[in-house]
Design a protein around this nucleic acid. Sequence first.
DNA 1: ACTCGTGTATACTCGCGAGTATAGTTGCAC
DNA 2: GTGCAACTATACTCGCGAGTATACACGAGT
Lengths: 216, 216
Amino acid sequence: MADARTKNRSKPASARELWNSGDARARDRERKREAVILTAARAFRERGYHNTSLDDIARELNVTKPTVYHYVANKEQLLFECFHTGLNLIMEGFEEIRSSEGSARERLACVMTRYASAITSDFGWCMVQAENQDLSPAMSHKVRELKSDIDQGLRHLIKQGIDDGSIRPCDAKITAFALAGAMNWIAFWYKSDDSLDAAEIAARFIDLFELGFQPR
Amino acid sequence: MADARTKNRSKPASARELWNSGDARARDRERKREAVILTAARAFRERGYHNTSLDDIARELNVTKPTVYHYVANKEQLLFECFHTGLNLIMEGFEEIRSSEGSARERLACVMTRYASAITSDFGWCMVQAENQDLSPAMSHKVRELKSDIDQGLRHLIKQGIDDGSIRPCDAKITAFALAGAMNWIAFWYKSDDSLDAAEIAARFIDLFELGFQPR
DNA sequence: ACTCGTGTATACTCGCGAGTATAGTTGCAC
DNA sequence: GTGCAACTATACTCGCGAGTATACACGAGT
């Protein structure tokens, strides 16, 4: 087919395309694509990646497998999209503090709150569980890169905190790992009917990490 | 060991020699069974549960699949055994402090050290990743129970600490989750060639969790 | 009206991997 | 040595699920 004509097909959707084409169809497509990804994310979270077939996902969408393949290239890409969607939620946290004025410790707390909210979302599980093992080398590389961005972001904040005096001198790497671990682990135990919501969990985590559990 | 004369040297050395050696006397069902479990644990950690076939494991042991089935009932049980072996390592930490005299906070630190060592072991990945999703309802139930034991153990220690004044009053549940999350997460990033060993990681974690990162 | 692109379904292929039937081998007991 | 039990291999079955070939439906542009 004339498949070669496919230009950039995704996120950097040029403003031109979005506007000029008052094309309801394109928007429709995008909405459907998002529905596929959301449904997949929920299914993966509930039953796991390998225990979820594309037939399952299709059934939950009230369509059949070829339809799903019309929106994503393959199962692996589907997992990647779920991962990526969740990751963006976390990234928003870092962007939010760009213009913030507070100390690094306060900005870190802000990021943690967003982080908790992202992890408790439908995409939380995929974000944490998207194992390199389940992805092709190329995808795996991308995932590692993106995860590393977050890690570096945390470390950077910690170092800034040490510099501005709002954080006690410590091993930034290990501290970032501990923080990320505690946050990511939420995806394993959190249930949406939990008594605590993301913000409350984040608040308690922040208190714990800032003050420690040894009496002052 | 005694038979180390040969030039032959293989990676899971101890595992292979059990079968390769012509020493019939050395055949010990239990030790072979443990070798199967250890090999499986390493394979799962490297490639994931679903990406590891029993043929793979058999090949790494220099035997064939039916032999593996001679020692475990099925793949699921194999995963469970890996999980269980790792879990016991953690449990040892709790048993170790039974007779300890220190404050609850000190005993918690002791548990954390053992915990870190267990997580960085070959069984760490299985322990953390043994998803209920991959197990039959019966096994899944057992796993949840055992994991819950650990959680309860941590919470109990925290409550004791609050009582004896060595730990600042806090939400025991959330604190236990944060601790467990940070520890479990080690399984995701730790590589055996890391610059830090389990004890050093544990020491830094303990410092962080006890004192917090806000300057005192 | 017809055709083209987009979206959807039916009905496949095909390989992989869990689990097994069967048969052979080895060492130990007597 | 003979027979038994434990052990191991060869060579299967069989179902599941990813991915696909093909055909059909429908709206938009001409």
